[in-house]
Design a protein around this nucleic acid. Structure first.
Lengths: 281, 281
DNA sequence: TGGTTAGTTTGGTAGGGCCATTGTTTGGAT
DNA sequence: ATCCAAACAATGGCCCTACCAAACTAACCA
């Protein structure tokens, strides 16, 4: 029993290596193995790593839960605070979801893209990335996605894309459209297109980028002129995809980003005041 | 003084809103403001968010440090455990680095790409992504990077790329090359090329992808045949970049990924045994 | 039958104490 | 005066105990 953990009545997971990686043990080891970096002051981290490994090796699968903090405390022979920190680390990584109360605890779950997006957004925010760099990256991704989508997606999907784009156009044409809804539709279109590439990596990257910089797209729908043009551009792109015309589709994509570029430039140069006012009206 | 935090003798940061978000205060508040959702069970998170906001707004800049845990505990009027959890969350996000001892504490630092990479790698790992999907994404990125590099990088950089590629080739030609070193060189080449695109986003994405899947590249250097071919392919690519010949450069890139694909297929089909043995020799 | 209440499990928080580490200061020996 | 070692102080890491709050369970009563 020692060194293993009862998994909510489901079975056992071997954490026998834990005792050997305790702080004091490591120090003793260092007198034998020379130049072995003594990983001190990180017992909690050690536990987190072991739990993470157990999860990644699918010894515990999504839907199941880790033992309670008090149980783990007993199994790992350490204070509850350490266990808490370890679990919180897993939670921050998106590996578990913590619930309170009876039948509560750390439930294993699939890592969501949003977790990666958050991390990315934080990074980009702190690095003061210019919108032009982001836009350039996004455009290049969009182009690849478009080509792949034309080659791989079924006609039904393609037609559905047109339908959604027309929905966006219709909404953009209204006199007082809800900008947030427009943004959401735009985002949805992007993801829908990304899905059609049949490569989840593109879908996730697109998702992450959008999460990190939704404010840009939002700006595009502030101005009624750009709003309509953008929606029309989406329809055009979708039509070219249905027609299996990569060249024209790519041209549309380029036009989209030219629009975006012009739009942010215009807003930055002076119209920002009135636009800002409109945003809070 | 109340509601603000002394910043290691540098100044003050206003955390006045914190008192209002303390558990007990919130409960008291709820008797006044009706239907105000009592956000209980998240005090630590609340504090983490406030500290994070202060960092992102650059009220505290990299190099400086947060007050000690005990100070924060006093300022925020809560237990030390809560403060610890908040700080650990920041640390996990890569926003601070924690040092022990005198003059220790949570030092603000720039978020590193590695943080995002880790998050991404974890996600990809848990989703069981096929290497083909990753490779496809990476190839598309590589192609864009190459075109941008040809257009934007200076001749000196381009020639340096060739030099590094030749270094790789020379090492790959040795009878008993160190595969780890080869992998590292390959990685370095990729990043170097990405830098030449003059768009940091590409650089980071490449970095993140590589961190998440270094094992693939590693495999490429296991087999002596692929090892040489890959190195030669790198040289070819670099030469075409120097010659400002995008078409041929892109062809080289495609060839690289064809090689990779063939290599992993070969290893998967049967040669895995001997290769595995060689790896641990 | 149906709703209410008490009990149990489990995370959330408080607060105190001790240890290990590390930068600084001090004091003694040369 | 210089240098080195020992004491000191600040600070994170860890432990412990107690209590609260939420959420599920089961017993109980109308």
């Amino acid at each position: 029993m020692l060194g293993s953990v009862v998994l909510a009545g489901k079975g056992y997971v071997d954490f026998s290596s834990v005792k050997g990686s305790t702080i004091k043990e490591t120090i003793y080891m260092s007198t034998q193995k020379m130049f072995t970096p003594v990983q001190i002051g990180r017992a909690g981290e050690d536990i987190a790593l072991q739990l993470e490994a157990a999860i990644l090796e699918e010894k515990i699968v999504p839907g199941e839960r880790l033992p309670s903090e008090r149980e783990l405390q007993a199994q790992f022979q350490c204070g509850r605070g350490v266990i808490r920190e370890a679990i919180r680390a897993l939670r921050q990584k998106g590996l578990v979801e913590i619930r309170k109360g009876a039948k509560g605890g750390a439930y294993i779950k699939q890592v969501e893209v949003a977790t990666v997006s958050e991390s990315l957004a934080l990074f980009l925010k702190q690095q003061h990335i210019g919108t032009d760099h982001i836009a350039e990256f996004r455009e290049s991704i969009d182009r690849v996605i478009t080509v792949l989508a034309i080659a791989r997606a079924g006609m039904a999907e393609k037609k559905d894309l047109v339908k959604e784009a027309e929905k966006l156009l219709k909404m953009a044409g209204q006199s007082q459209p809800d900008k947030e809804t427009l943004s959401r539709l735009d985002r949805k279109l992007n993801i829908q297109l990304a899905k059609m590439s049949k490569n989840p990596v593109f879908e996730w990257v697109m998702d992450a980028i959008q999460h990190g910089f939704s404010s840009n797209d939002y700006a595009l729908y502030e101005d009624s002129e750009y709003r309509l043009k953008t929606a029309e551009n989406w329809c055009e792109t979708a039509r070219h995809i249905v027609e299996n015309d990569p060249t024209r589709a790519l041209n549309s994509i380029s036009a989209h980003y030219t629009l975006l570029q012009r739009c942010v430039a215009a807003r930055a140069s002076g119209v920002a005041g009135s636009a800002e006012e409109e945003a809070f009206g």
